[in-house]
Design a protein around this nucleic acid. Structure first.
Lengths: 137, 137
DNA sequence: CTGGATCCGACCAGATACTG
DNA sequence: CAGTATCTGGTCGGATCCAG
C-alpha cells in the first residue's frame, strides 16, 4: 500500500515516562489527542453532528479536503469506533457515515475546545500579529 | 530559514463556507485546533501546568522530543500568546517558559479532552483491535 | 545552558487516473 | 457515487554542528 492507514498515531515516538498517574496514560491519551488534533477528523465530527451524511456530502461540506484525505480520515474514525460506515448496495452505491455513541461523547469536549477557540480567537490573532510584527517586521 | 516557523497553521487550505454561524469561524478555529492538535504543544502545556519550567527541564520531561521541535513548539505557543519566554541574562543563560492567562485558560478544555481520552481509551483500543482484526487479519 | 543553521530521510497529502 | 492505486512534491522532524 502506498500510503499508511495510520497517518497520525503511528508516528508517536518514545514517550514521557514518569511515575505520576497523570502521565501513566500519556501514550494512549497522546494517540487519541492526535486524532482529535487531526484537523479533518474534527471537521468530520462536526459535520456529522446533525445526523448521518454521505461521502460526497461530507466532501462538499468540508471544502478543502481531498477525497483521499476524507477516505483516510473516515477510516481512522471508523477504526477508533467513532463513526459507523453503512453501505447501501444500491445503484448508484450509497454509503452513510454516522457518529457512534462514543463519537457523540467526544463531541462535548471537542465542542468545548471549539468554543474556547471561538471565544479567544481575537486574543490569539492579536498575539500572533504582535509576535510577527515584533519579530519579522 | 530552513524550516518554517508555522508548522501547522500555515498549511490550512480552503475552508468550509456555509452560512451557519457555527461555521463562520471555521478558519480561526481550525488554526487553533491545529495547535491544540499538535502533540508537542499539548505536552508542553501539560508540563507547564505546575509552574514555569526551563528549556532543558521541559526537554527532559518530554522524553521523545528533540530540541528542535521543542524550540519550534515553544515559539509557536509564544506566538499565540499562550506562553511567555523570560530570559535571565546570567551565565549560564537561563530561560523560563510559563503559561499566560490565555494558556491557562486553554488548559481547562484540553484537560477535559484528556480526561475523556483516559476514560474511553479502553473502548477505543478495543475498537481499534476489532477493526484491525476484521480488516488486516 | 539555550538555542540557531543545515543536511537529509521519512512520510504526509494532493492530483490524477481507474474500478465497481 | 464511492472509493482504490500510483506518482510526486512539500515539509515535518531528527541528527549534528556551531554560537552566545
Amino acid at each position: 500500500m502506498g500510503t499508511s492507514l495510520e497517518p497520525t498515531h503511528s508516528r508517536l515516538p518514545a514517550l514521557p515516562r514518569r511515575h505520576d498517574p497523570d502521565h501513566a496514560d500519556c501514550r494512549s491519551v497522546a494517540s487519541i489527542l492526535a486524532r482529535v488534533g487531526d484537523k479533518w477528523s474534527v471537521f468530520v465530527i462536526m459535520m456529522l453532528s446533525d445526523g448521518p451524511k454521505r461521502f460526497n456530502e461530507l466532501k462538499r461540506m468540508i471544502n478543502g479536503i481531498s477525497q483521499r484525505m476524507l477516505t483516510l480520515t473516515l477510516r481512522g474514525l471508523e477504526r477508533d469506533g467513532l463513526v459507523t460506515r453503512t453501505i447501501f448496495p444500491t445503484i448508484p452505491p450509497r454509503v452513510d457515515y454516522e457518529l457512534t455513541d462514543l463519537g457523540r461523547g467526544l463531541q462535548a469536549p471537542v465542542k468545548a475546545l471549539g468554543e474556547w477557540a471561538i471565544t479567544h480567537q481575537d486574543q490569539i490573532a492579536a498575539a500572533r500579529s504582535r509576535f510577527d510584527e515584533r519579530n519579522g517586521g
